[in-house]
C-alpha cells in the first residue's frame, strides 16, 4: 500500500470511530452537564441499543434497510424510556447526590448487562447493513456503510446542537443546567427535565450503537469500550461542553486509528509497538495529564 492510501484509510477509520464516539460521549456529557450525574451505566445503554437493534431487525422481514430504519427510530426510544424509568425510580430518590448516583449507576450497569445476557443470550448478534456497497480506493476497498455512518453522525450532532440552542426544550435544559432552583422558581418542572435529559443521553448512546451494529455485531459485553472512551472524551473536552466533546472525540478517534494504522508504516522497524492498546494507553495518559493540568478540560469552564 502507498503512503497516501494508508493515510486515507487511517483518516476514514478515524472519522468513523470518532463520529460514533462523539454521539456516545455527547450523551454522557449532556447528562453530566445538566444533571451533574456521572453515569457509569452509559456503556450499557449503548449495548442495549445494539442488542435491541438486532432484536428489531430479526423481527421485521423484508429488506435490511427497512428493518434498520425501524431500529434507528425504535431502539433509542426504548432505551430512552428505560433510562427515564431508572432516573425516576433510582436517581431521583437519591436526590442526585454525586457519590450515591455513581454507586447506583454501577448497579444499573450490572443489571442491564446481565439482563441483556439473560434475555438475549451470550452470542454475538449480527445485523445486516442497510446499504451494501463498497468504495475501491487505490490499494484498499472500503465499506460504503462506514462512510454513511460518518455522514449520519454529523447530521445527528448538528440536530442535537440545533435542539439545544434553537428550541424551547433546549432553552429549558440550559436554564436547568445554569441554576436548578431558579429554573424551578420560573415554573420549570425540573424532575421532568432531568428524566428527559437522562433519557436523551441514553438515547444518543443507543443511536450510536444502532449505527455501529452492522459493522461490529451486538454483544452483551460490548459496553465497556464505549464507556471508557466516552469518559476520556468528556474529561479531555470538558464535562458538559458539547463543543469540547466533539473536538475531543475527533482527537481520541484519530489517535485510536492513526497510531495502529499509520505509525507501523512510518516506523516499520518498531511496527509491533504501535498497537491499538498503545493508542488506548496514550488516550488514558492524555486524560491523566488533562486532569492534572487543566481539570476543567480543554473547553470546560472553571467552576465558579
Amino acid at each position: 500500500m502507498q503512503l497516501g492510501s494508508i493515510f486515507l484509510l487511517a483518516l476514514l477509520e478515524g472519522l468513523a470511530s470518532a463520529s460514533v464516539l462523539a454521539l456516545t460521549a455527547c450523551g454522557l456529557s449532556l447528562v453530566f452537564g445538566i444533571m451533574r450525574v456521572v453515569n457509569v451505566a452509559h456503556g450499557e445503554f449503548f449495548m442495549l441499543g445494539a442488542v435491541l437493534a438486532w432484536f428489531t431487525a430479526s423481527l421485521i422481514p423484508g429488506p435490511p434497510a427497512l428493518a434498520f430504519a425501524v431500529a434507528l427510530v425504535v431502539c433509542p426510544l426504548i432505551v430512552g424510556a428505560i433510562a427515564a424509568l431508572a432516573d425516576m425510580l433510582v436517581l431521583k430518590r437519591l436526590n442526585y447526590e454525586p457519590e450515591a448516583t455513581i454507586v447506583a449507576t454501577i448497579g444499573l450497569l450490572y443489571i442491564l448487562q446481565q439482563g441483556a445476557l439473560t434475555v438475549f443470550g451470550p452470542n454475538a448478534l449480527p445485523v445486516p447493513a442497510p446499504v451494501d456497497f463498497r468504495f475501491q480506493f487505490p490499494g484498499f476497498g472500503y465499506s460504503g456503510y462506514k462512510i454513511a455512518v460518518i455522514v449520519a453522525a454529523v447530521l445527528l450532532l448538528l440536530g442535537l446542537w440545533l435542539i439545544l440552542t434553537r428550541t424551547r426544550i433546549g432553552l429549558v435544559m440550559r436554564a436547568t443546567q445554569i441554576d436548578r432552583a431558579t429554573a424551578r422558581a420560573f415554573g420549570i418542572n425540573v424532575d421532568r427535565v432531568y428524566a428527559g435529559v437522562f433519557a436523551m443521553g441514553a438515547g444518543l448512546a443507543a443511536i450510536a450503537a444502532v449505527l455501529i451494529v452492522p459493522i461490529q455485531q451486538a454483544h452483551y459485553l460490548m459496553g465497556a469500550d464505549p464507556l471508557l472512551l466516552s469518559f476520556s472524551v468528556v474529561i479531555i473536552g470538558g464535562l458538559g461542553s458539547l463543543r469540547g466533546t466533539v473536538v475531543a472525540a475527533l482527537l481520541i478517534g484519530m489517535v485510536d486509528q492513526m497510531i495502529p494504522i499509520f505509525m507501523p508504516v512510518v516506523f516499520p522497524a518498531y511496527g509491533a509497538w504501535f498497537t491499538p492498546t498503545l493508542a488506548k494507553i496514550m488516550a488514558t495518559l492524555v486524560v491523566a495529564l488533562v486532569l492534572v493540568f487543566r481539570p476543567q478540560g480543554l473547553f470546560g469552564k472553571r467552576a465558579a
Binding site: 500500500m1 494508508i6 460490548m222 495502529p260
Partner: peptide
C-alpha cells in the same frame, strides 16, 4: 477486539 480494519495495513 471488535474492529479489525486498522490491523490490515500491516
Amino acid at each position: 477486539e471488535t474492529t479489525f480494519t486498522r490491523y490490515f495495513p500491516q
